[in-house]
Amino acid sequence: MADKKVFHGDGIVLFKDVADAMKGEKTLNKAGFDNKLIAPPPELRLGCDLALEINLVEKNAIEREFANNNVRVKEIAPLKKGTADVLDIVKVTDFGDWTMVKSGNMKISYEKKSGIIVNISGGGCPDIPYLNAMMVDKTLDETPLPRDIGYTLCATMLQRAYDEAVKLHKEGK
């Protein structure tokens, strides 16, 4: 783990109260996530006076760590002022026997007839090749989910694409 004194993350975890923030810090330290306690910037204050600075790309894994340890979180957001919210644009491309669903920077493609996932593309974080290995050649029903085995923002976006793919497949598309 990096020295906390020099750690500079790009995400912030906001909590309802200081006790939650302290518990969150303890949980992330125990799990080995780089983090540090900070005062939230004014534009992100929700009434608390402590927050955690994190590597935003680890959002998915951090959310899971908090859920597993009953840490209550108000919001996880980019630390840089002016940064947009997570992209929520979904685009669908019909390739005849296959459908491709794109959410943000991630794409999932499946065979319409069988629901078998045939490819995952996009993203640059190391859990994406892992998710590709775990999900491709499985059906949409039987595949493990990005939110359960992924760690990063790329996995978060892939989960959104997957959710849309499931919906479309149920509609026969």
Partner: peptide
Amino acid sequence: ADPNATHPAYISRHLF
């Protein structure tokens, strides 16, 4: 192209 973005999932909507 987005000076504020730290990850491709957080780019400004108009750039996507």
